[in-house]
């Protein structure tokens, strides 16, 4: 079959269409795979925060419990009191606990962007993790960096306050 230079045959056109379809399918599959991973992490994070919220709600005032739960690497548990102006908008007008992708510099921003928060009906919320060094001073972190295996939390609930600490 003779072709003129630059002439595109029907065969070529169909091949190009098929190639484009193939590439689109590969891109689609890659995006889908990525989404599945991200969704899975979010689903796990949601389960973790739901479990913690469930435990808190099941507690009576002046009660203290400690329980192990499955952590998630590169995520942290944090929270804000009702009167804390730095808390993310997701918390609305209440105290809240959040599980968010790790951002120890600005947890509020990470929580607002891709964290999962649960409002807590207490005036004050205190979360204390491992000791960190800030401007030369060692203080307990206001977040709990979650490991990829089990971690034990201690929760103390009073009438106005909820305290969540790492039980080490």
């Amino acid at each position: 079959m003779k072709k003129k230079k630059g002439e595109m045959t029907l065969e070529n056109t169909l091949s190009i269409i098929l190639a484009v379809l193939g590439i689109a399918l590969i891109i689609f599959a890659a995006v889908k795979l990525y989404q599945i991973t991200v969704n899975q992490e979010n689903a796990n994070a949601k389960k973790i925060i739901d479990n913690i919220e469930g435990k808190v709600n099941a507690m009576k005032d002046e009660e203290q419990i400690s329980f192990p739960f499955q952590g998630q690497k590169n995520w942290l548990l944090t929270g804000w009191s009702k009167d804390d102006s730095t808390r993310p908008d997701k918390c609305h007008f209440n105290s809240c606990i959040c599980i968010c992708p790790t951002n120890t510099v600005n947890p509020a921003s990470s929580c607002q962007k891709s964290g999962i928060c649960r409002e807590i009906d207490k005036e004050e919320l205190l979360i204390r993790g491992t000791t960190i060094r800030t401007t030369g001073v060692f203080i307990p972190a206001s977040y709990i960096d979650l490991p990829s295996n089990l971690v034990e939390l201690k929760i103390y609930k009073t009438k106005d306050r909820l305290q969540i600490t790492l039980n080490s």
């Binding site: 796990n44 389960k47 973790i48 192990p68 499955q70 952590g71 990829s148 295996n149 089990l150 034990e152």
Partner: peptide, 18 residues
């Protein structure tokens, strides 16, 4: 036993949904 000490002794990392 379902506690941090025992589980973490066996598992450096845990996968799956809690």
């Amino acid at each position: 036993n379902y506690n941090v000490g025992d589980i973490n002794s066996l598992c450096a990392s845990i996968q799956g949904n809690p």
